[in-house]
Design a binder for these strands. Structure first.
Length: 559
RNA sequence: GCCCCCGUAGCUCAGUGGAUAGAGCAUCGGACUUCUAAUCCGCAGGUCGCAGGUUCGAAUCCUGCCGGGGGCGCCA
């Protein structure tokens, strides 16, 4: 029996109690889904529900009394072997081994689909993340969003949502001009301009631009007038950077469905259209030579300039047009992941959303994640694009590999800062729990391989009542939690929950492995015990693989 | 000054109002002449930053303070 089935049974049982008058409540008082969770301590049974405590007050009875009322009815359910009322009114439920063990077959038969749920079915979500400027390689801060964002996208999809991964490419404006001037200066052998970029990569790109021009038979950029030369460095340099970023992300296992170029919003007239729309809606005013959006009408702390007095669009103008564009492409939820250094944007972005007539925090959601801190020998390392002391996605991957990098970035809450110790990274980091999880997976594969060689086959038998060891009920309970964890991670936009869950599952598996043997000893006869344990082994393998897949981490067959 | 995040075991961190607050790493002591010892078992380790409040119940919610990080442009 899965916890979902148990939850549904509980719901039905409550409805019955309301219908026959034993429970003085109306059907509307009952929660849509009854919470069924693993109790903190295994001594409290396989599953627990707090529904009696939730309903006690409404029903005008003590939670314990209500729990006792439900106890007998629960016990009558097939597969339930014990029910006790505990503490303030918990109902602790123990399944008989056969009912609990049945889950092993459920998992194996569901295969890669196990854990999928439909809680977000029908939602069209646009998830924007990374969106690093094309003025340099993706640094360590951007990598966190690549790992977290892609994992979140996978979990949203596993929960039934239709997700588009999107990268906003800021190829317009003053920063790009600085990038172009830096390339030009370096090509001429000069120092980077005061407000420009200085890293080694600038030289490489400058050379690459010149090289590409030569390959295409076009005049060398430096022979052109200053303006034209700078434009060549801008256009070609951005394109090269774009290609490189795309490639690096691909190697990191992150592929976007849409790379959206900011410049296109300006060249297509989308910005003008968005401003015109807001003007129609009466939220635009002119002052001090500039055009403003009255965001204070929607809770922002000050109004915002969208068209500067010099005639150029302010940065937020692009955001307006971009948001409108996403909505017009049919997304009902626009999610943007930003670093903590951008949290000040939330107010104006939500105001902008409301100005368009949408609902802030529903149609537009902004996820703020804390920054990654680089540390070397306990001392913070300051990164600077200008000085070229940037730690990039490649540096990280070269040091620890994609799996360890993605896992370590995705396993903590985005609310907490991550300290990455550069010295620790360069050592073989056995400290990364990803190996604990991957090792568990490799073990399940190895066990399955040996079992097959010794003639143990799942098809020959399955007797779930044989899964009666304490490590087996713990492992089964952990397997049963997977779907709920995935749904919760998606709903709360907290992919780290899946990683934490996998560590727990891997632990439960290792403990089981230590206590119970799948393959027969020596010339021992193959029995249903071996076959049934193989089902459990393979069910665990499946969930570990599915979970690692949600994190974009490989599930190795050998280690 | 205002806004956001964090403060939990020696370290890194889980824990969206529930039971005796957990895991990994580190330390110490055990377990492989049979499915992977990258594992398992055991010991030890805590005023959940501090002080109030809300209630049957608070690490979790509210208020104030302390400490750390980030943000408050006609920059992008």
């Amino acid at each position: 029996m899965t916890p979902a089935e148990l939850s549904a049974a509980l719901r039905a049982l409550l409805t019955d109690a309301v219908d026959d008058g034993t429970l003085p409540l109306s059907p509307a008082d009952l929660p849509a889904t009854v919470t069924v969770e693993r109790p903190r301590s295994r001594e409290h049974g396989d599953w627990a529900t707090n529904v009696a405590m939730q309903l006690g007050k409404k029903a005008g009875m003590s939670p314990r009394a209500l729990a006792e009322l439900l106890q007998a009815r629960l016990l009558a359910l097939p597969g339930v072997s014990a029910v006790e009322v505990a503490g303030p009114g918990f109902l602790n439920i123990t399944l008989d081994a056969a009912a609990a063990g049945e889950l092993a077959r459920t998992v194996v038969e569901a295969g890669t689909g196990f854990g999928r749920n439909e809680t977000l079915a029908g939602q069209r979500i646009n998830l924007e993340f990374v969106s690093a400027n094309p003025t340099g390689p993706i640094h360590i801060g951007g990598v966190r969003w690549a790992a977290v964002g892609d994992s979140l996208a996978r979990m949203l999809e596993a929960s039934g949502a239709q997700v588009t991964r999107e990268y906003y490419f800021n190829d317009h404006g003053a920063q790009i001009d600085r990038f172009a001037r830096s390339l030009l200066a370096r090509a001429k052998g000069e120092e980077a301009p005061e407000d420009g970029y200085g890293g080694q990569y600038i030289s490489e790109i400058a050379e690459a631009v010149t090289e590409r021009r030569r390959a295409e038979g076009l005049p060398a950029p430096l022979t052109l007038p200053q303006d034209e030369a700078q434009e060549v460095f801008r256009a070609v340099g951005v394109d090269l950077m774009f290609t490189e970023i795309k490639e690096r992300l691909h190697q990191f296992g992150v592929d976007f469905d849409v790379y959206f170029h900011e410049d296109s919003l300006h060249s297509s007239g989308a910005v003008e259209r968005a401003v015109a729309r807001l003007r129609e809606l009466g939220h635009i005013f002119e002052a001090e030579g500039a055009t403003w959006l009255r965001t204070t009408d929607f809770g922002d702390d000050k109004d915002r300039v969208i068209l500067k007095s010099d005639g150029h669009a302010a940065y937020i103008a692009g955001d307006l047009a971009y948001y409108l564009d996403k909505r017009e492409r049919g997304f009902d939820r626009v999610i943007i992941m930003l670093g903590a250094d951008h949290h000040g944007y939330i107010g104006r972005m939500m105001a902008m959303c409301a100005a368009f007539g949408d609902t802030p925090h529903v149609n537009l959601e902004i996820l703020i994640g804390q920054l990654v801190n680089l540390v070397r020998e306990g001392q913070p390392v300051r990164m600077s694009k200008r000085a070229g002391t940037v730690v990039t996605i490649d540096d990280l991957v070269d040091a620890v590999g994609v799996d360890a990098a993605r896992y370590s970035l995705a396993r903590s809450s985005t609310d907490s800062m991550i300290d990455l110790d550069l010295d620790l990274l360069t050592r073989a980091s056995n400290e990364n729990p990803v190996f604990y999880v991957q090792y568990a997976h490799a073990r399940t594969v190895s066990v399955g391989r040996n079992a097959g060689e010794l003639g143990v086959s799942r098809a020959d038998g399955f007797d779930p009542a044989l899964l009666d060891h304490t490590t087996e009920s713990t492992l089964l309970a952990a397997l049963g939690e997977f779907g709920r964890v995935v749904a919760q991670a998606a709903e709360l936009r907290e992919p780290h929950r899946v990683a934490r869950y996998l560590e727990e599952l891997a632990g439960a598996y290792h403990k089981w492995y230590d206590q119970r043997r799948v393959t027969p000893f020596g010339d021992e006869q193959v029995t249903d015990t071996h076959r049934t344990r193989l089902w459990l082994n393979d069910a665990t393998r499946q969930v570990l693989a599915n979970g690692l897949g949600l994190l974009g981490v490989s599930a190795p067959e050998r280690m």
